[in-house]
Design a protein around this nucleic acid. Structure first.
Length: 539
RNA sequence: GCCCGCGUAGCUCAGUUGGAUAGAGUGUCUGCCUCCGGAGCAGAAGGUCGCGCGUUCGAAUCGCGCCGCGGGUACCA
């Protein structure tokens, strides 16, 4: 239901009960048959304030109210005092036209207009290929970006590359050790990927000229970034910017951040170390420069987030792994100290467990199981990279971000009705099949007044919700909401399909149904697109 | 100990921000192919929403207290 339409209804009710604003009037979709198309509880809320009976007040409202135009067919009081209204089929038929004329734009809105948002996700260390946790974060982050775009936010996707610090030096040391056939340091990096990088660097001559672990580490990191970028690209994920931590250091970012923290009295010296006084801002005190004079990771990270704010973003959304959830508190405290309260939103992307044959699969390198994003795509798509991407992304999007996810590898690989990805894609394919038929009339010639069967109207009702679902997904930062919506829409279409033939029935009916099918195709395709999943015309 | 997240059908999970008789998928039964691709549709069965108080017209949803599971708790990143 469009916000505009609801507002008109709300105004009508306000007018009837002498309310000066319509904010209190909320409309919901009733769950059950026989409860109309829209429902409001305003009578129950007002009855409380006005010390009267809800049902009586609801009756009064219905007596006085003047509904806009003639889109309302019927209204009645139900249950404890709900006002349920039935909307005319004419209203719904217009939706089909709206969809077809808006095309891919259908469902777009401008609720985010004027907001500049940066979404940072994955941000894996450049010490190896991307793992499975990154794969989930990438799917969610990228969809979130698409959804925010669709709702009018000015959004940027960013990957923060930790290309400086301890782990880079360690990476360099590992590469050097491997090239000399020495033992890799205790907490260093080993594995096929490091070995091949060592080979590349030595054949490029880098290893012979350069022996400083830091510089070797940087060179290796650069190669890893390329590997990560490639994997993400075949996953359909693109970033507007790969922000290098080293850039931050070159600009003296951490030093500036420290000065700014000092300026607001958020820094103290104790036990020979320098601390951020987080306890003043709702967190705990944290060391930012060790007693040995080395900055901890916190300082560059504060500097990085400050940098985001200085680039003009009003909101920063970070997707982090479950091992980082108290990072959120300290970073928010730091931003608060620097005058950017409520700037940072943190989404914790929970753990992924793989299941096969009813048992948990350990994701260990040693066991030779799937560890990287690339391996997952290949495994699940059985060599077909597009299919692998579709399945992986859809599966990762099936659960709320904050819920641990069980990934059933057997189900994912199964090409059957049990696989939810195919169920949704199949609805799209089916429509394409219908519209491809020789006897299928041109949907553009349709007279929509021929749509009046229950299954037809019901399908339109689902299509109409698309925009609202996207808005809720954007506002709650939960692009997953689209998944259940699309599954639902596919179900509604399949029901329509079994109840209503499109091709081979009376000409006018046929054209109207073709138009409805076409509208459904558009919404399915765009919905899948927001998930980063393809909408195939044939399967 | 403290911080964060999670407990909903046998299993995996939704739940429109506090609404009406609790929703899917999957698994188990039962039906439907002369038919736009059956990768589909219809039906049955399956619930003390972890437990207990509280808030109110109304709670799976909000508050408090327990119980259970997971993660975090560095002068590591």
């Amino acid at each position: 239901m469009s916000a505009d339409f609801k507002n008109r209804l709300s105004e009508a009710i306000c007018h009837a009960v002498d309310l000066d604003n319509d904010l209190q009037v909320k409309w919901t979709l009733p769950k059950r048959e026989g409860q109309g198309d829209l429902s409001t509880n305003i009578a129950m809320i007002l009855a409380n304030q006005r010390k009267t009976q809800p049902r009586q007040l609801a009756d009064e409202i219905l007596k006085k109210v003047v509904w806009p135009q003639n889109e309302i067919e019927h209204a009645e009081v139900a249950g404890p005092g709900f006002i349920n209204i039935w909307i005319s089929n004419d209203h719904y038929r217009k939706i089909v036209n709206d969809i077809i004329t808006s095309g891919r734009n259908y469902g777009a809105s401008d609720i985010g207009a004027g907001h500049k948002v940066i979404v940072e996700f994955v941000s894996a260390n450049p010490t190896g290929p991307l793992n499975i946790v990154s794969a989930r974060a990438a799917a969610i982050g990228d969809s979130l970006v698409r959804v925010l775009n669709k709702t009018g936010f000015d959004v940027s996707a960013e990957f923060y590359v930790n290309d400086s610090g301890k782990q880079i030096r360690k990476l360099g040391e590992s590469v050097i050790a491997i090239s000399r056939n020495d033992a890799v340091p205790e907490d260093g990096y080993h594995g096929d990927d490091i070995i091949s990088i060592a080979k590349e660097l030595s054949s490029e001559g880098v290893l012979s000229i350069e022996s400083d672990p830091e510089n070797i580490g940087k060179a290796a990191a650069k190669k890893n970034v390329v590997v990560q970028k490639d994997a993400l690209e075949s996953y359909g994920v693109n970033f507007d910017r790969w922000f290098l931590e080293s850039e931050l250091h070159q600009q003296g970012g951490p030093e500036t951040a420290l000065e700014k923290l000092k300026a607001v009295g958020a820094v103290k010296e104790e036990d020979g170390a320098t601390w951020f006084s987080g306890s003043k801002f709702g967190d705990e005190d944290r060391v930012i420069i060790t007693s040995e004079g080395r900055p901890t990771y916190l300082l560059p990270d504060i500097s990085y987030h400050l940098n985001k704010a200085e680039r003009g973003f009003d909101t920063a959304i970070d997707l982090l792994g479950p091992d980082h959830h108290d990072y959120a508190g300290r970073m928010r405290a730091a931003m608060k100290a620097l005058g950017h309260d409520s700037f940072l939103e943190v989404l914790i992307v929970q753990q992924v467990h793989f299941v096969s044959g009813g048992e948990k699969v350990k994701m260990s390198k040693r066991a030779g199981k799937i560890v990287t994003l690339q391996q997952l795509i290949e495994e699940v798509g059985e060599g077909d990279l597009v299919r692998g991407r579709d399945i992986a992304r859809y599966f990762f999007m099936q659960r709320r971000t904050s819920t641990p996810l069980e990934f059933d590898l057997d189900l994912a690989k199964e090409q059957s009705e049990r696989n939810p990805v195919f169920y949704v894609q199949y609805a799209h394919t089916r429509i394409c099949g219908i519209l491809r038929q020789d006897g299928c009339p041109d949907p553009l010639d349709a007279d929509l007044s021929y749509l009046d069967k229950g299954e037809e109207i019901n399908l339109i009702k689902h299509l109409e919700q698309f925009g609202e679902i996207i808005q809720r997904a954007a506002e709650s930062r939960e692009p997953q909401k689209l998944v259940s919506y699309l599954h639902d829409l596919a179900t509604t279409f399949h029901k329509f399909y079994t109840a209503c033939r499109v091709v081979g029935v009376e000409k006018n009916i046929s054209a109207a149904r073709a138009a409805l099918s076409n509208a459904t195709r558009i919404v399915l395709a765009e919905g899948l697109n927001l998930l980063g999943v393809s909408a195939p015309e044939r399967m």
